[in-house]
């Protein structure tokens, strides 16, 4: 068996036994249920808190509101939880020394990085899948209005953005010693991408739109082709960051 396979198995077992998988699945499941429910209940709740006698026209909620909740929650809380859960995945092994026994048995360092990234991707994918399927089911149940389009593609864009941030996390975790340091670097990258949005010339390339413009896609206000360049760049970014992580990690004295 090759080292990637062996170490990937170990990472999956670790995710199950340290409850990483459980956390991600339940949190994303919760989002899946909450998204349509919040969309449904928000107008009612608002109405209750309005002063007596005041009448405003509250829009009737639709499936679009439910998906808007999905993209808001998964990009914010969802991604934060995933990054937090994985922040220590390499740093802890290095500070505790658990890699030493395996590296001295000839475990290749490429396998360590790639298997860890693959395990992160696997859990992130499961989370996104669970959350989007549950949201989809309840949305169809509550709002059978057929107003939402390009769902699979919009979710894919968000997934890819998450994959890009995880690659960034893996790379930064080879640069700094502490798990918090790698989180700070990853956070800084997100801030940086947000700043780049200010420049109109950069915008059509910025991977950030993969997580910010999903609703335009669902409401058919943007063509899918709008995302071609950010997708290409995010994909390249993932590959480049993982390769860089391997290069840095190979030189690291442990």
């Amino acid at each position: 068996m090759n080292h990637f396979h062996v170490f990937f198995k170990k990472e999956l077992r670790e995710s199950v036994r340290t409850h990483r998988l459980l956390i991600i699945l339940t949190i994303f499941f919760m989002f899946g249920v909450m998204n349509p429910l919040t969309a449904k209940l928000t107008p009612d709740l608002l109405a209750k808190f309005l002063p007596e006698g005041m009448i405003i026209e509250l829009p009737v909620p639709s499936s679009l509101d439910s998906w808007a909740q999905f993209f808001k929650n998964v990009t914010q809380m969802g991604l934060i939880v995933v990054l937090l859960v994985f922040s220590g995945i390499l740093a802890n092994e290095i500070t505790q020394g658990t890699l030493i026994n395996l590296l001295t048995k000839g475990l290749s360092r490429e396998a360590v990085i790639t298997a860890k990234y693959a395990a992160m991707l696997a859990l992130w994918s499961m989370g996104v899948l669970v959350s989007s399927l549950v949201t989809w089911g309840y949305t169809v149940y509550l709002f059978p209005d057929g107003k939402s389009h390009n769902l699979v593609f919009a979710v894919f864009c968000l997934w890819l953005f998450g994959a890009f941030l995880l690659a960034q996390l893996v790379f930064s975790t080879t640069l700094v010693k502490s798990s918090y340091g790698s989180l700070i670097i990853t956070g800084a990258v997100v801030v940086f991408l947000n700043i780049l949005q200010v420049f109109p010339g950069v915008q059509p390339w910025n991977p950030l739109v993969l997580a910010t413009h999903n609703m335009e896609l669902i409401g058919q206000n943007l063509e899918p082709s709008f995302f071609a360049r950010p997708i290409g760049l995010a994909f390249l970014g993932c590959c480049l960051l993982v390769v860089l992580a391997v290069v840095v990690f190979r030189k690291k004295q442990i």
């Binding site: 409850h19 956390i23 339940t26 499941f29 249920v33």
Partner: peptide, 24 residues
Amino acid sequence: EYWPFFVPLIASQFILAVTALVHV
């Protein structure tokens, strides 16, 4: 009216809380 939402929510919260409690 909304039991199909609350039951799974409460169940998943329960699983998470109990797992954490056992670990604590």
